[in-house]
Amino acid sequence: MNGFDYHRPETLEAAVAARAGAPDSAYLAGGMTLIPTLKQGLAEPSDVIDLAAVAGLAGIGLEVDRLTIGAMTRHADVAASAEVQRAIPALAYLASEIGDAQVRNRGTLGGSLANSDPAADYPAAVIALGARIVTDRRTMAADDYFKGLFETALEPGELIRAVEFPVPRRAAYRKFRHPASRYAVAGVFVAEIGEGIRVGVTGAGPCAFRWTALETALAGKPAPAAAETAPLDFRRFNADLHASAEYRAQLVRVMARRALANLAA
């Protein structure tokens, strides 16, 4: 691993200032992606700015119609949270299915969203629930956040503070996980919220996206069969040794059908 300077700021302002003061620096959240990336030499930051000691970045708060989760909240804490289980049980379930126990003990919501791995779980929920991403400088709608492969709307140095999830009437998540890495080969989160049902897909495309054609076909009714026929353009889907684009499209349909069946149950 290349050398770097390590910083452990205790305030948000100090973290953002440290990042701004070193153009090639990187924030460190749980480190479940960044540390293996450093070891492989795929990233060589001059400075690593650990967010673990920054006050106010971890925690879970539930108001009537809004669940707020701090960026440094670990997956295991989301999975075990009584508030999350009460307000959005599908989100607690999603967190409990990320990686393995040791990964869930370290990995964070903010780290997952900032990284925007195409196969990460959280993005599907953020998209489907229409969550709002609160940073050190603004609040973004989920629909405006994911831009492409490992690409988000975050500006250089912009730091996620928390994510605000609207509480849906019902929600469900199903994924087809890679048996070794446990990443989603395809994952679908469905949420009955506002006027209709929103559908978030992860694992299939360059980044998480809404399957709006299925949302339209459902017209607010959790009809699992609609997932088999709703138009789904898979020309830009990921294709790798695990699954072809066409196979991923089929998995998206099956995961959507299962999630909708769970929603209706």
């Binding site: 452990r8 460190l28 480190g31 540390i35 690593v48 650990d50 126990a101 040791q102 990964v103 370290r106």
Partner: peptide, 13 residues
């Protein structure tokens, strides 16, 4: 109080 993979934790953490 948590099980972690110590090959994926920086000393500073």
């Amino acid at each position: 109080g948590r099980a972690v993979k110590s090959c994926t934790v920086l000393a500073g953490q």
